[in-house]
């Protein structure tokens, strides 16, 4: 599974919705339950899935799923 697919699984899991399809352009506006609170939940779940830790700055700078994937890949390499 590539990063996008793994991330998509995390999204589906956190939002309890198996129909979520991620694209690089997906933002919080595209997913109903994605608000500032579920955002933290999402971050925690992604950190667990990829065994890494994000800094506050990194979290604040994320604009869309594409950037999220790029950030994860950067931290994993």
């Amino acid at each position: 599974m590539d990063t996008k697919e793994r991330l998509q699984e995390v999204f589906r899991d956190v939002f309890d919705d198996d129909e979520i399809e991620l694209t690089d352009e997906t933002t919080a506006d595209d997913i109903d339950a994605w608000d500032s609170l579920t955002h933290v939940q999402l971050i925690v779940a992604v950190e667990k899935e990829f065994s890494l830790k994000f800094s506050t700055v990194e979290v604040m700078r994320l604009k869309n799923v594409g950037e999220f994937i790029a950030l994860i890949d950067r931290k994993l390499s």
Partner: peptide
């Protein structure tokens, strides 16, 4: 959990 507090004003870690 300071990041959580700064990001969403969570009083303690979600864990």
């Amino acid at each position: 959990d300071y990041p959580s507090y700064f990001l969403t004003k969570a009083g303690f870690s979600p864990d």
